[in-house]
Write a protein that binds this DNA or RNA. Sequence first.
DNA 1: GCCGTTTTCGGCCCGACTGTTTTCAGTCG
Length: 561
Amino acid sequence: MATLLELKGANPFKVRAYQNAARSLMTHDDDLELALEKGQLTKIKGVGPGIAKDIQDFFHTGEMLELKTLRESFPSTLFELLEVPGLGPKKVKKLFDELQIESLGELEYACHENRLVKLDGFGSKTQEKILKGIALLKQRRNTFLYPEAFEQAHVLLQQMSKWKEIKQIEIAGSLRRRKETIHDIDLVCSADQENAEVVMRRFVNLVSPNDVISHGTTKSSISYRGIQVDLRVVKESEYIFALHHFTGSKEHNTLLRGLAKKQGYILNEYGLFKGESLVKCQTEANIYEQLKLDYIPPELREGLSEIEMSKDHQLPNIITLEDIRGIFHVHTNYSDGKNTLEEMVRAASERGYTYIGISDHSQSAFYAHGLKEKDIDAQFIEIDRVQKQFPKIRIFKGIESDILSDGNLDYPKHVLKRFDFVIGSVHSRFKMSQEEMTKRCVRALENPFCTILGHPTGRLLLARDGFQIDVQRILDVAKKEGKIVELNANPHRLDLDWRILYTNRNDCPYISINPDAHDVEGLSHVTMGVSMARKGGLTKDHVFNTKTTKEIETYFARQRA
DNA sequence: GCCGTTTTCGGCCCGACTGTTTTCAGTCG
């Protein structure tokens, strides 16, 4: 509704009202259907009589009259135009009304025909920028996995922190919030006022003029090895406010500024002001404190329900990397891992872990040299040997067993019962219907020998969507069966998605943050997994591998009894 | 369209940059 109304040129506050209501509904934890039946929809923040009526209509008829009318007044392909950088609703509407442009293809053609320059408010620069934007969209090169973006950001940070004009510099934006994928790198720095322009000049000179996206006196953007980097420079006294501002998210900031305003403050990237006077804040925590809020860590600043929770002192005490005591889901060269069992155990021990769960692939995973029964015998003997060598770290014997398409695990009972734990994972037949796939995984969860459900949706970030599966059902069954669900920490997977964890944080089964390491370096995936758990609002108590070795042993023993 | 410890009417987050304009609208974050 909001997008369509915006295109229509409706009252911008009406547009925002719909956006607010949508966000509010997305994070609404209670039963919507119940609220609807009781006629209590308007009790939800942002939902008034108008939108309550919309929701009712939608629930009963599957449609909303105004939405239907609006939708019919625009071709569905029009929305892709909004993806083009520099194009917003006003310009898209103009293109549609005056040039009858309905799709990206038509827009590109019109640019080549030089037809945009004649439009009011457009010019040759706009046309050029749009063409560039379309090319970028086509390449899909504007999204990166966290580690790729992080590495680039660090290279820049190293380099720029040596510039004598810069006093402080930090990574802000989605990188600081630890989003799983990153569109651009945001850097914030402080400098003496007379040096600001020098910093900007040095920054844009890092790349060729062609790769300078914008160049101002305090804010510039460049395209650095294919990724957009924004740099903002402020005075030293403004730095903490700027860092907060550019950490975002946009949604979080919007809500926070609204709250500040209600309390008689103005909040922007330069400070927190009461009238003309600046409120002194040394840290980000001080800013929240002034607004009568508990400190909200960057990972939680997504504009979901964190501000409300913080106001009520209900923020979860989210897990930290130090809470992790051990790790499961580790591969060795018995299947498709690179390092030996001993090397993996040594590395885990050196990282201070007190237990490690080895889980190579099972026999039907021939692509990964899955273990036959005799390989299991051999590995068990070796584990016992290595265990003697490293008495301080407990080695659990496990397996990552394929969940076959009928939901069975791919060893017979007498084999499965030999393991301390079994991770059941789907590695084949991804294209089942949601119903079939859900049934398949439920069956696995109900198998008494299955301990952990591995990478529950099978997604590969930026490469492959997860398979169709009713995640809610899976979580419910896992909880009921006392099973553990994996948060696969491989940066390509990060599966389950943190948003699912966030919505289910008050009622979910144990989550195990598993590196799915295929070599020694892969053990460090845990860091990323913890970041996702933090975004999901999980506490130490939610996470299985924060337990002590003793607790783990007891848990496994009870399961196998 | 929603909301209210300034308000049931009059507001609704804030500022930088760009490109098109001669004073500002649109977009972005």
